[in-house]
Structure formats: C-alpha cells, structure tokens
Design a binder for these strands. Sequence first.
RNA 1: GGGGGAAUGUCCCGAGUGGCAAAGGGGGGGGACUGUAAAUCCCCUGGCGUACGCCUUCGCAGGUUCGAGUCCUGCUUCCCCCA
Length: 419
Amino acid sequence: MSADQPFKSQFLKTMQERGYIHQITHPVELDEAASKGPITAYIGFDATASSLHVGHMIQIMMLRRLQQAGHKPIVLMGGGTTKVGDPTFKDTQRPLLTDEQIKANIDSMKVSFARFLTFGDGPTDAVMVDNADWLDKLGYVQFLRDYGVHFTINRMLTFDSVKLRLEREQPMTFLEFNYMLMQATDFLELERTHGCVLQMGGSDQWGNIINGVELIRRVDQKPSFGLTTPLLSTASGQKMGKTVGGAVWLNADMRSPYDYWQFWRNTEDADVGRFMKLFTDLSMEDIARYEAMQGADINEAKKVLANEATRMLHGEEAAHAAAEAARVAFEVGSVSGDMPTFEIAAADLEAGVVLAALATDAGLAASRGEARRLAQGGGLRVNDAAEADANRTITSADLVDGVVKLAAGKKKIVLVKPV
RNA sequence: GGGGGAAUGUCCCGAGUGGCAAAGGGGGGGGACUGUAAAUCCCCUGGCGUACGCCUUCGCAGGUUCGAGUCCUGCUUCCCCCA
C-alpha cells in the first residue's frame, strides 16, 4: 500500500503509477505472486440494470490492466445476489428482478465487457461466471455449518458498513448481515474452481473482500489477496459519473457514443491527467505532456481523453463521428447527423406541434411544465435562437436543412427530423 | 408483553401555528462570466392548461370540521426505554 517500496510485478507497478490502488491486504506477498507468473483475479458486478455505466469503468479497467500484464481476469456477475435484491437501499423496496431479467441483463452487460477484455479459454483469457450457479444451491444448515462457524458476530460488528448503520440507528436486516458471508463464499468458490487469488473492488468493498480472504485462509489454508480502488470523485468533490441527463450508460442503445464522448469532454481541468491514467491506455509519458497543459489549451487534452475513452468502448469510427459532431456543434455552431435525433411524423410537423410538447417528447425536458420553465429561463433554443414562449407551435416552416435543432442549455441538443 | 417517539413535496435531509402547493438546505436544471472546465452570482425545481384556473401530494384507512400535513380513531413500518 505504501508507495515507498516499488513493486516488482508489472501489474502492481502499473496499478500504482496509474492510481488504482487504495488498499492492498498483503502488498509484498501479492507482488511476489504476481511477479512469479500469471495469477487469477476477479471483480463482482451486480446484474440490476441492463447496462453498465461509467461508474463501473474503473473496475473494468482494472481487469483490463490485469490482462494486459499477463494475468487472468474473472468477471463475476451477481446473478444470485441480485435475485435477493440489494438490501442497502432499504427505503425504496426495489421490485425484485425475475430470473429472465437477470439473465438478459447479464447478456447485455457482456457486450461492454467484451470491448475491454479478451474472453476465451486461453490461460490469460477472461471468463465470466455467475454466482447464482453456486449460491442457488446453498442449503441453509449446510451453509451455517460450513461457513457460519468462521465468522464471529463480534468481528462483523466492527465493520464500517455495519457500524455506521448502527450508529445512525438505521435498521440492518439479518439478510443484509448475511450478505458479507455470501460474498465471502464467492471468493472461496472461485479460489477452488479457478485458482483465483485476488479480489478487487471499490473501497466500500474492503470489508467484504477481507472476509473472503479470511475465509479462504481458514477453510483452505491458502493465501489470497484483496485490492481496493480509491473512491472516485471529481476534483471539485462531486461524485463521478453523472452528467446532464442522468446515468452515463455504456451500452450504445442507452447512451449514444456522442453523449459518451461529451461526458469525457466535460471533465474538470484538474481531473484530466488522473482520468487519462485510469481510463485510457495512453502511456505515462504522453499523459504527462497533456497534464502539463495550462488554461484553455487543456481543452485539447480533454478531446484526447474523450477520443480514447470513446474509441475503447464504441470503436474508432464512432469516436471519430462523435468528435466531429462535437466540433461541428460547438466550434462551427452548425449541425451534424451524429447528434442525437428525434423522429416525428411529417404530417404532425406539418400540422404544427406545441414547442413545450415537442421538447418534452424529444427528451429535453421531463414535463411540459419543465419545458416552459426552461423557456422562460432562456434555456430553450430553436435553431440556435432562444425561445421564451414554449407555447408557440413548431411547423415544417421551422425546418432548416431538413431538421429543427432544439437545444436545452448549451449542451443538450436534439435534431428533430420528420419522417 | 408494557411505555415513549418517528414517518413530510416518491432524489435526499428537513421546518411546519387548522386556511398549505407546504419554510430552509443539499442535489438537479437554466442563465451570466469563461475555455463545452472550476469558482462565483442570478433564476427555476409536483402535473395539466395560453390564462382567472383545475388536479394530485405530507406512511395507510376512516372520522371531526366550511376547511386537516396539522385534531380524533384504527392499522402498518421503524427507533428508544422497560419486561
């Protein structure tokens, strides 16, 4: 964990210099193991949504670094744990997902993983597993006898996740309390079936990861390791990952490559270097050059960051198109076909549509009232002209080059196209 | 089992005297300034309607009242104390 003694293994060296490491259970031993030969490591992902989002990127990138350094990554999908439902959000009882939904989610997420990892049967090829495969089969009594004996309540109560809850006098259910045991058995299972020796995750997972390490040591008398990443926030203290218009999904059908590019383009100055290290494959030397940029020049670095990040996820072509669309939109002030579009029946447009309704349907506002407020505040623009009256009708007379350009604020742009 | 508290604008925290679309934050959105950044300042933040307006909201279900987030009854969930 300390930066004082340099790591020997390529993997940890990279991890450290690029800023992925927050804590490691046994840094020296892990370094030793990783420098001797290929090791296997895993990260767990929930299957609650049909797409991963940028918040998952740091984890995905860790697995990528692992594979790049000649080791074997395992993607653990929480098919089993998702079935129970994450109890952390106790306020809103989230509707439980069906087996089919979970399966569909996993399939859908796999697409994104495949952009960053090479899957297959080779020694360093990534594999994907689903903890439903073993959690579903657990017998309660058997589970208690096999694993329950290795956990003391005394210790479990010392974990931050539990302690915080108790201090705030918030309820913690027994189910939730058992969660850490289930996660620990995941690690044990992977250690036995795949020879997995390392679990990685966000810093909030530290306690859970330790439990797994501990369990393996007690049950199988084998060493294993845990590594966590720092909590990612922007330089100004915001939680990383949100943007105008909600979650930044990785799947192209949920968030366009254009939006994804925009997300990275809007990175804060102070974060550019850090994000480049974490989210691109650029060399440390290149990054150092970009990091040195000052003032407005740093915008060039942001473009590079956006290009690289988008290229990895959506491919070279999509990245180019997104960059070009952005250039046209912001630097030329014109329109480009790669901007998000909203299709409307030509007949409807011919007849005329109330602007507030159109802006709402096109996704620029959540309701007509919001569109009205937006217009009154001067944030709604039609063909680049601010329009304070959201009640005016938009007709085919407003078409410019075959589209009506609607914008909410400076960055949310939608082209309305008659079909 | 007994006693005492709590649930508020469906993003979160949180004030609330019988007249309340309901204080104040945070978060979010927009504008100004800039560099598609940060910081700062200003505006907005339940839905529908062009509008006097209508509708829906304060755990759930009833009741008192011209009128209830506010009073009464029952229920649900959570917290604390006693057993």
